[in-house]
Amino acid sequence: MIEISHVNKWYSPTFQVLTDCTTSVTKGEVVVVCGPSGSGKSTLIKCVNALEPFQSGEITVDGTKVHDPKTDLPKLRSRVGMVFQHFELFPHLKIIDNLCLAQTKVLGRPLDKAKTKGMQLLERVGLKEQAEKFPAQLSGGQQQRVAIARALAMDPIVMLFDEPTSALDPEMVSEVLDVMVDLAREGMTMMVVTHEMGFARKVANRVIFMDRGEIVEDAQKDDFFGKPRSDRAQKFLSKILSH
């Protein structure tokens, strides 16, 4: 589904954020990307739907080349759902309108169909009653669930999550993770940047560990948690799991 091969990215000639990153995500797979802050994991996931440009290497999503200038990027992005750390709901639109905007403007769905779809998804994330409210009237956890529903409304073939729970108050983390776990169990292809190792243990197929712009470890879940091969991954895990 997603093929990443030999991707390099520089912010400036002396500052390389991604170094020769190669990995893949197959259909129905859930891959968790972790690593210390500044390791390039958010940048890598944003390269997948071309929110961030990269200088060399190749990324293909469902056979479409992301780096090809001829690629219709809006069309590609409309098939790749993304959830952000800070939710990024559109504050001036009601919840239901947040869900309908891209459905109508990008996919060209008629408004009533978009609304029906939106309401179904809101019901699924447990927020049907909030449809007529504005984002600022919802809690962080509710906003993030809306953001997930907004991405799902586009019928994505893959979902990208960029630290979806790290801006949340601790008591709201689980309501978001529950939605993500359900999604994974239903067979959605997911690439998730997160520190939530409990989530990784529960539903991940593979875990990628990144440090200083490199993919240090790329292993099956049980291998990763059983016996990480690199020192850096071991250190990271011991820090993150000790408390």
Binding site: K46, L51, P74, R77, M82, Q85, L89, L107, M154
Partner: peptide
């Protein structure tokens, strides 16, 4: 917030 522009782009808006 910078993310607003990104979110719009990620949804496929031009």
């Amino acid at each position: 917030p910078r993310g607003q522009r990104m979110a719009a782009t990620a949804l496929g808006l031009t």
